[in-house]
């Protein structure tokens, strides 16, 4: 990574309120996808109480320093950034050590992000769950945000709280990713639909990720789905989010409607050819 930048870096907070809805998975996959598109990308693990972005990226054995040492000036930023072997456009910066939870303040966060932003096109901040201090620290330096939720009542409710907080902080734009979509359940209305969630939260949708077993397999390996051109539905969804973030117009298709559409088309054909009902 060289130190000269043209446009200012996009600094994006990935948050949800509720835990376990897919923030870290999105951060890792989006980071790789952006890097593969040629963007110099730094992913920052701000969930350092329960850090696992390193694990999802397969970088857990290569961390020596954290943002903490950089701010204390016991190491240089370059030493703390862990470059991804296969995707050198991507680097990981752990915010801190779980044993030293107390050090980080919103000002610390702003300082370290400003340093990172000088040499990156994208800075993705993996936010901890909750809306307390951990969230406030992580959000301190964010310019824009992606709120990720699943089509479940508790996740949507918590997302709404977070959106309220982001609005009062003036973070914009705030965009939505709907994760773990099950098209079959949506089509039979046994799950909140895509439109239901976007209506309720009133945010522009930047991505839909279906429930996909490959996500678990890739997590086991420490190789994000977007790393090796995996063609699984979730991999494509993450790639599309990266492209939309860069301003590309990639159409979003509601998978539950595509299904219904197919059935409707079939019924239509039967109706026309048989003249029945």
């Amino acid at each position: 990574m060289d130190a000269v930048t043209s446009a200012p870096a996009r600094i994006i907070l990935i948050c949800s309120g509720k835990g376990g809805v897919g923030k870290t998975t999105l951060t890792a996959n989006l980071g790789i996808a952006l890097a593969r598109l040629g963007e110099r990308t730094v992913v920052l693990d701000a969930d350092f109480g329960l850090r696992n972005l390193d694990l999802l990226l397969g970088l857990e054995n290569r961390i020596i320093y954290t943002a903490q040492e950089v701010l204390a000036e016991t190491c240089r930023l370059e030493q703390a950034l862990v470059k991804h072997k296969q995707e050198p456009n991507l680097a990981l910066l752990p915010a801190g050590n779980p044993r030293m939870l107390e050090w980080l303040t919103p000002e610390d966060m702003q300082r370290i992000v400003a340093m990172v932003a000088e040499r990156a096109d994208y800075v993705l901040i993996d936010c901890p769950a909750g809306i307390e201090d951990g969230f406030k620290n992580a959000a301190a330096a964010a310019r824009e945000a992606i709120v990720i939720t699943t089509p479940e009542v508790s996740a949507v409710r918590d997302a709404d709280r977070v959106i309220g907080l982001l609005n009062t902080r003036g973070v914009a734009p705030v965009q939505l990713v709907l994760n773990r979509v099950r098209p079959k359940m949506m089509a039979s209305q046994e799950m909140l639909g895509v439109d239901d969630v976007t209506d309720i939260l009133a945010l522009p949708l930047v991505g839909l990720v279906v429930e996909d077993e490959q996500v678990i397999v890739s997590t086991n390996r420490g190789e994000p789905l977007t790393l090796n051109g995996n063609g699984s539905p979730a991999a494509k969804a993450y790639q599309n989010i990266a492209r939309r973030l860069r301003g590309e117009d990639v159409p979003l298709e509601d998978p539950s409607k595509a299904r219904r559409g197919l059935r409707a088309r079939l019924m239509n054909k039967i109706r026309k050819t048989t003249g029945l009902f």
Partner: peptide, 15 residues
Amino acid sequence: KPSGTLAKERLQLVL
């Protein structure tokens, strides 16, 4: 009612 519809109604109230 399908549970998805119920979920939306309950969410709108609680939000």
